[in-house]
Amino acid sequence: PDFTLHWNGITIHFKGIDEEQFRHLRELLDRGVSLEELEELAKELIK
């Protein structure tokens, strides 16, 4: 499924991740993950 997340004025689209992965990403963003960390995470998910 696809998810869209609005965070700090940025709209991020996640394609092909499951709800569990999306929930994990939201928790990280709510905790204050940096954009660099988010990019690293995205690379991991894409593999």
Score class of each variant (00 low, 15 high):
4 T>A: 03
8 N>H: 07
35 L>G: 03
9 G>E: 03
5 L>T: 01
32 G>E: 04
5 L>R: 00
29 L>G: 02
32 G>D: 05
3 F>E: 00
8 N>R: 03
43 K>E: 11
16 G>P: 08
47 K>G: 12
15 K>F: 15
16 G>A: 03
26 R>S: 14
30 D>H: 12
27 E>N: 13
19 E>C: 05
23 R>C: 14
11 T>I: 08
1 P>C: 08
9 G>I: 00
16 G>D: 15
16 G>F: 08
18 D>H: 06
37 E>C: 04
44 E>N: 13
38 L>W: 05
7 W>K: 13
37 E>I: 14
22 F>P: 00
8 N>C: 06
38 L>C: 04
31 R>A: 11
22 F>A: 03
26 R>T: 15
4 T>M: 05
5 L>W: 01
26 R>M: 14
3 F>Y: 13
45 L>C: 03
28 L>S: 07
24 H>Q: 15
46 I>W: 01
34 S>R: 09
19 E>Y: 07
31 R>Q: 13
2 D>F: 08
40 E>M: 13
28 L>R: 05
11 T>C: 08
45 L>V: 10
26 R>N: 09
40 E>K: 15
6 H>S: 13
30 D>V: 11
29 L>T: 02
45 L>G: 05
30 D>Q: 11
19 E>R: 03
2 D>K: 09
3 F>N: 01
35 L>K: 04
13 H>A: 05
27 E>C: 13
45 L>M: 14
6 H>A: 04
33 V>P: 05
11 T>A: 04
39 E>I: 15
11 T>R: 02
47 K>C: 09
32 G>W: 09
33 V>R: 05
23 R>G: 09
27 E>A: 13
26 R>V: 15
14 F>H: 01
12 I>H: 03
1 P>I: 14
9 G>P: 00
21 Q>K: 09
22 F>T: 03
32 G>V: 13
27 E>W: 04
39 E>Y: 14
33 V>D: 03
28 L>D: 01
4 T>P: 00
20 E>T: 11
41 L>E: 03
7 W>E: 03
19 E>H: 06
36 E>T: 13
36 E>A: 15
41 L>W: 15
18 D>W: 03
31 R>T: 12
20 E>H: 15
27 E>Q: 11
1 P>E: 10
29 L>R: 05
5 L>Y: 02
32 G>I: 11
43 K>I: 11
34 S>H: 06
47 K>P: 09
28 L>A: 13
9 G>A: 01
22 F>S: 04
36 E>I: 12
2 D>G: 14
46 I>G: 13
38 L>N: 00
4 T>V: 11
24 H>A: 12
28 L>W: 10
40 E>D: 12
27 E>H: 08
14 F>N: 01
20 E>F: 11
11 T>N: 03
28 L>I: 09
44 E>Y: 02
18 D>A: 06
41 L>K: 06
13 H>D: 13
15 K>V: 15
16 G>I: 05
46 I>L: 12
31 R>E: 08
3 F>L: 04
12 I>W: 01
3 F>H: 04
19 E>G: 06
22 F>I: 08
13 H>Q: 10
8 N>E: 09
12 I>Q: 01
3 F>T: 01
30 D>S: 10
35 L>N: 03
46 I>P: 11
42 A>L: 15
23 R>N: 15
32 G>P: 02
